[in-house]
Design a protein around this nucleic acid. Structure first.
Lengths: 208, 208
DNA sequence: AGTAATCTTGCGTCTTCGGCAATTCGTTGA
DNA sequence: TCAACGAATTGCCGAAGACGCAAGATTACT
């Protein structure tokens, strides 16, 4: 373990960090209240109050109550993108993604996992949330696509391959989460499911 | 061409057909007006009027103006599901999907293709529409997943494989559309792109 | 034909979304 | 350190939208 001179992680200016914090606070408040009272049982006013901002400010951060709720617990996509770019240049995209995504998932704390389950249940119960969660997955896909295209020296907009890889990888994560949420206990873990999902992908999706 | 005794396609009762028709009329009106005046340049009242229903009725069909706009031109998922179940039992899911999806896409009329391009542009310009389009793709994925699981005798809820296959197949379609919309001319066709997307998938998504 | 089930609609109400302008807070350069 | 600039927060307010409810119209069933 050499302490490699970590490329200068440009520390965010205070203003940006504050924005991030506000955004998270709002999302967490929205999510907690939604779990407690149901999606339509909570007013944006209440969410704003719990997050110590005005309703007007909440509007600046999220275009809708639903978007705020779903945004809770989302992890930072720029980190994933950075990590993707730092993988060995000769590694295949799928391998990079397998490594990073399964590690990322494995790194979730028990609290985060509990929250995830709650979030899934909430979404199942409130169809109005679903579009926003799907848009979130699409955002993840975007981040992956752009990073992969960059790694491969392709145009992120028009190259099909990075899009496919990103879409498939996101499907693996989505599948792992959805199946995991529906199963009885906590085993197999989400990370295990991500791994086997990638196995399936790399085998060309042939049944068994 | 033997006229195979097509399993009795249960003709929909009048009421259902009427509902379908209303739904389409509303969606088409919403889409047309949105293209013309922009998403926020059109009132639900105007959409309702053009679709010969009351605004209140529009609410019964769609939970939001955005959902109505995006619903325009969506094709019937039950048809795809039926078709999937009618494929030879020994065919692999991926092969079935390749066949049906590329045929489906190839069957789009020029008008539908023009509309598709307009729809994509509209969504690009109006981020509020994106979540709803994503939810649409998720609906397609659901239909595929359930049919595949049924074909394979698996539980649609908890079996990972059908979810993965469905997700990957939808990614192929999504990719084909998005790339096609961004390219200069109309060639290669969307159907060609679907085919090569499946090639890529079946090869395990290895780069070239 | 007559009854039951389902759709449509109008009305009223509550909520949300976002423009605008004033204020507060963070950043930057001297 | 301080001043000047840029950015975020907030209050106010109006325009729409979403939906419960109940009455009337339409379709389905026997």
């Amino acid at each position: 373990m050499s302490d490699s001179p970590r490329p200068p992680r440009p520390r965010l200016p205070l203003r940006e960090r504050k924005k991030l914090h506000t955004r998270r606070t709002i999302a967490d408040a929205a999510f907690a209240l939604a779990v407690e009272h149901g999606v339509d049982g909570v007013l944006v006013e209440e969410i704003a109050e719990r997050a110590f901002v005005s309703p007007r400010t909440l509007s600046n951060y999220f275009p809708s109550k639903e978007a705020a709720i779903v945004a809770a617990g989302e992890d930072d996509l720029s980190l994933l993108a950075d990590a993707l770019l730092e993988r060995p240049a000769d590694e295949s995209p799928i391998t990079s993604l397998r490594t990073l995504l399964s590690a990322g998932v494995r790194g979730w704390t028990p609290d985060e996992i509990v929250a995830l389950r709650a979030k899934e249940r909430l979404i199942d119960e409130h169809p109005a949330l679903l579009p926003h969660r799907m848009a979130q997955y699409d955002g993840l896909e975007d981040a992956i696509r752009v990073a992969i295209a960059q790694r491969m020296g392709l145009d992120p907009e028009t190259a099909p391959h990075p899009r496919l890889v990103a879409g498939a990888a996101v499907s693996v994560v989505k599948t792992a989460i959805r199946v995991w949420v529906r199963q009885e206990g906590d085993e197999p873990s989400i990370a295990d499911m991500v791994e086997s999902g990638f196995d399936d992908l790399e085998a060309g999706l042939v049944p068994d």
